[in-house]
């Protein structure tokens, strides 16, 4: 119970911080970045449940984001339905796809699963490019309408920010609940040793599939948010490159840590921003930074900086104590 109450404290603090964040951000652009981070964070949270807790890697997560984004885009632009229906459909379709492919795919282990999900992601992207009647192929779907609440269109960065921030906080709460639940305990057992978990009566296959479906639904949900935020979807946004970026977010932030996933999403986006002005050298620097962080903080930024800050703050106090 202590763990749970601590989680609620942190969640309340995060929600409060998210609520006041736009007040201190200097520009629309900074809020735009915050929205992008929020959307990525939702995907990363789902992926982190899968990777960090259930120990299953996915190199095809971008496909679920793409499925959500295209579901929303097509329903709202071509069928003229409300974006909210698109959002629900995006999440549902993401989860449903995960349920369908997860059954067979999750029979694979380790690197085989990585390749399986990667192949799935590639196929989904090829379909987005080739199924022009539905997806408009490489032209992309334009003019995706914004959400609206009681007649108020969420067409400014600020309004969109509050929707995304609320979604992200909900996603964090959801992930926290999953981890504290029976499923979460079972998942950790699966991660520790699948064989041991199975022999002690845990239905590993079912739990893995549940988490996979959940991560797919969260990705689809985020994809829908992306579609209505960017007002445009294109197959290039949902390829292998983005899948890799998502895995980087999770590991860079710190696996098996909810805040790690959120921080990873923020870190990847913001490091990218800082490097923009280097133009063609930005890729070199980004690669070097990524290597350096993982070498020096193998458990990710979240735990890594906790250690670092602990050492910085603690060294004075601890030093004194040692002398005493």
């Amino acid at each position: 119970m202590r763990v749970r109450s601590k989680r609620y404290h942190q969640l309340a603090a995060a929600a409060a911080a998210a609520a006041v964040l736009p007040l201190v951000l200097p520009s629309e652009y900074a809020i735009h970045l915050a929205v992008v981070i929020g959307i990525n964070a939702i995907v990363a949270l789902g992926l982190n449940l899968l990777m960090g807790y259930a120990g299953q890697v996915s190199l095809g997560q971008a496909a679920f984001v793409g499925i959500g984004a295209y579901a929303s885009a097509i329903l709202s632009v071509k069928a003229g339905l409300s974006p909210w229906i698109g959002l629900a459909a995006g999440a549902a379709l993401g989860g449903l796809t995960a349920a369908v492919v997860g059954g067979p795919l999750l029979k694979l282990r380790g690197h085989y699963l990585a390749m399986g999900t990667l192949g799935f992601g590639m196929i989904v992207q090829i379909v987005m490019v080739q199924w022009e009647d539905l997806t408009e192929g490489t032209i992309g779907v334009m003019g995706i309408p914004p959400f609206s609440v009681a007649g108020l269109a969420l067409d400014s960065e600020l309004r969109m920010y509050y929707l995304v921030a609320a979604s992200a906080v909900l996603a964090i709460a959801l992930a926290g609940n999953v981890i504290d639940s029976r499923v979460g305990r079972a998942m950790r057992a699966v991660h520790g040793s699948e064989v041991a978990a199975a022999t002690s009566g845990v239905d590993t296959a079912r739990y893995k599939l549940q988490v996979f479906i959940m991560s797919g639904a969260m990705a689809g949900f985020a994809g829908s948010l992306h579609a209505h935020h960017a007002a445009y979807v294109h197959p290039d946004s949902f390829g292998f490159h983005y899948s890799i970026q998502l895995v980087v977010m999770v590991v860079l932030g710190g696996m098996a840590s909810i805040w790690g996933a959120v921080f990873g999403a923020g870190a990847v986006t913001l490091i990218g921003e800082q490097l923009r002005s280097f133009q063609e050298f930005s890729t070199i620097i980004f690669g070097a930074v990524l290597v350096a962080v993982m070498v020096f903080m193998p458990a990710g930024l979240w735990r890594g900086s906790a250690d670092l800050i602990g050492r910085l703050l603690g060294s004075r106090g601890a030093g004194g104590r040692r002398r005493a």
């Binding site: 890697v57 860079l252 890729t283 070199i284 690669g287 990524l290 290597v291 193998p298």
Partner: peptide
């Protein structure tokens, strides 16, 4: 080697970082 003892996935991310770095150098 400096990351010896890190998890498999951490090492994989290091190789991803290296690939981005090398690609950047090749373009330069």
């Amino acid at each position: 080697r400096p990351a010896r003892g890190a998890s498999v996935i951490t090492l994989i991310i290091i190789t991803i970082g290296a690939s981005i770095l090398l690609r950047g150098i090749a373009m330069w």
